[in-house]
């Protein structure tokens, strides 16, 4: 049996088994006596098409929010990771601060933080302190996700074998130069897939800004849902999020595969 024939046979088996499972699922769901009821409440064509323009329009707020947050998180996360990696005892306060920061902001639920910052800080009515919900949602996401991302960076930095740094130092590079020109370039390449993974989580979490009254995609869907007592607009929103996140998850998979291949030196 040639490799090509074997591959064709593999594809055929995959298609048949997928179709079989999908058919079984469709029959199981469709045979439920209340399926028409659920279909009308969650998958109504008319409510889908009427909600689409409103939800897409509101989704621009989500896009603004995650693009701005991602731009801020990349450098902040790196700085925190570096602060945690410094071994010089003189910088102990910095390392302690970075450790507390990552422990706290990874541990606290984002929904609680957005409540406290978004409603609590404006209530102080301090002059010059912004009260816009968008601002506080951005702050919340940056605080929480830079803590996650800093850990991703740190894992990347620590995955570089110590011999790399020692070799660089032996060549006469300073500690900083070794980090800047030898360790970081290798570490950053390695962390791209897990970094994008965190960003997918971040994109979905932009819906949290709705807590503060901002009408973004999820809130817009909730408004339409409550106005008509039909849940279809929520499905519309889910679809829009998937349209954005699925290409990104595919990209993450491809980058990870490429990285694996590169590390194995082309051997398959």
């Amino acid at each position: 049996m040639t490799a090509a024939r074997s591959a064709r046979k593999g594809t055929l088996v995959a298609v048949v088994s997928t179709l079989f499972v999908a058919t079984l699922l469709a029959i199981a769901i469709g045979s439920s006596p209340s399926w028409p009821l659920v279909q009308k409440a969650f998958f109504d064509g008319t409510y889908f098409s009427t909600s689409l323009p409103d939800v897409v329009g509101a989704f621009f707020i989500n896009i603004q929010l995650f693009v701005l947050a991602e731009i801020l998180i990349l450098p902040i996360g790196l700085l925190i990771a570096l602060a945690r990696s410094i071994t010089n005892p003189a910088f102990a306060p910095l390392r302690i601060f970075a450790t507390i920061y990552t422990d706290f902001f990874r541990g606290v639920p984002s929904i609680l933080l957005i409540y406290v910052l978004g409603f609590g800080v404006p209530a102080l009515r301090l002059p010059g302190v912004p009260k816009e919900p968008f601002f506080w949602a951005l702050v919340t996401l940056v605080l929480i996700y830079s803590a996650y991302v800093s850990e991703v960076y740190r894992a990347g930095i620590e995955s570089i074998h110590p011999s790399q740094e020692r070799a660089a130092r032996a060549l006469g590079l300073t500690r900083f130069q070794a980090l800047r020109f030898v360790v970081l370039p290798q570490a950053l390449r390695r962390v791209v897939p897990p970094l994008l993974n965190d960003f997918i989580g971040l994109q979905k979490d932009t819906a949290l800004v709705s807590i503060l009254g901002v009408v973004e995609a999820f809130k817009q869907a909730q408004i339409l849902k409550s106005a008509n007592f039909n849940f279809t607009p929520l499905m519309t929103t889910a679809l829009i999020f998937l349209v954005i996140t699925i290409p990104m998850t595919r990209l993450v998979d491809r980058l990870a595969a490429k990285d694996r291949a590169a590390q194995q030196g082309g051997a398959r």
């Binding site: 978004g118 409603f119 209530a123 009515r125 709705s210 807590i211 809130k219």
Partner: peptide
């Protein structure tokens, strides 16, 4: 300006107290 929409009246009250609305 587009209206702010809150999940509960309590949150609307918090936003009014905070000068958000």
């Amino acid at each position: 300006t587009e209206a702010a929409v809150f999940n509960t009246n309590d949150e609307a009250v918090a936003a009014l107290n905070g000068g958000i609305i």
